[in-house]
Design a protein around this nucleic acid. Structure first.
Length: 262
DNA sequence: ATGGTGGATGCTCCA
């Protein structure tokens, strides 16, 4: 089974990109973040034409929004809300006996100080709540957690570890909270099973760079994690870097993981 | 130290 996660930054502007991904990589299931559209306006038909007969959406006007598109039936579709907000960041479905969590963690604003930046405080509280909840989930279940986690955990997940230590997405408090989330249900970083942690790897490049490829100041913000029972079934992982150069591009690129059948 | 771009929206917020 081929799984893809992609922060599309508007699904309606990324339909051609998704068609290209679909034709070239043939995913069985796609988790989308930042769909930026209310559910009645979601382009359901376009995804059905790509072969995604099963679709779960959780969107709102203008901001956030997640979706799961699948060739295989989705069971027990539901969502969770965190920090007392209904901001469309966590969608859950079961496919082929695997619980799929599509997650969009708050970006956290600019200043990495929860005392002066409410968005950063929200991000930290969000990670803490999700962690506490996953600690109550049975880690023996086959589960996948995929999405834009908005944290680059490893030194090799940013262009400059030293310069990024005070930049939101790579501060010690965030990488610490992400490590706690990873430990909560014994999650395994599927991508780093195939691309060694010593190797630099990014999934996001800012729109603000004059030349994203030349400066290459990326971050690995998008992740695919699996629970212990799925670890022996991991077959491959890849980051589709070249989509950053497609027109019009998302600032995030897709991450693909293949899981063998039992 | 600063501003840079892109998306949705509606004269600004968010990333």
């Amino acid at each position: 089974m081929r799984l893809v996660t992609w922060n599309v930054n508007s699904i309606r502007l990324r339909l051609d990109g998704l068609r290209r991904i679909n034709e070239e990589w043939r995913p069985d299931l796609v988790c989308l973040q930042e769909t930026k559209v209310a559910d009645p306006l979601f382009p359901r038909e376009a995804l059905a034409e790509m072969g995604f007969a099963h679709l779960a959406v959780l969107g709102q006007k203008g901001y956030n929004g997640v979706a799961i598109a699948s060739r295989l039936p989705l069971d027990d579709v539901h969502s969770r809300s965190w920090c007392g907000r209904d901001d469309c960041r966590h969608l859950i479905a079961t496919v082929g006996g695997i619980d799929v969590h599509c997650l969009y963690v708050p970006a956290g604003g600019d200043l990495p100080d929860p005392e002066v930046n409410d968005k950063f405080a929200h991000k930290l509280a969000f990670l803490e709540e999700v962690t506490a909840w996953f600690a109550t989930v049975d880690p023996a279940r086959p589960m996948v957690l995929m999405g834009d986690l908005n944290v680059a955990p490893l030194e090799t997940d940013v262009w400059s570890h030293k310069q990024m230590l005070k930049v939101v997405s790579h501060t010690p408090v965030e990488t610490g909270r992400l490590a706690a989330l990873q430990a909560s249900a014994g999650w395994i970083d599927a991508v780093r099973q195939f691309i060694p942690p010593e190797e630099r790897l990014y999934t996001w490049w800012s729109y603000r760079a004059a030349d994203w490829q030349a400066s290459n100041r990326g971050r690995r913000l998008d992740h695919v994690w699996v629970s212990r029972p799925l670890a022996p079934r991991l077959a491959s992982a890849q980051v589709v870097r070249q989509t950053r150069g497609w027109q019009p591009p998302s600032d995030h690129v897709p991450v693909i993981v293949d899981i063998r059948p039992i």
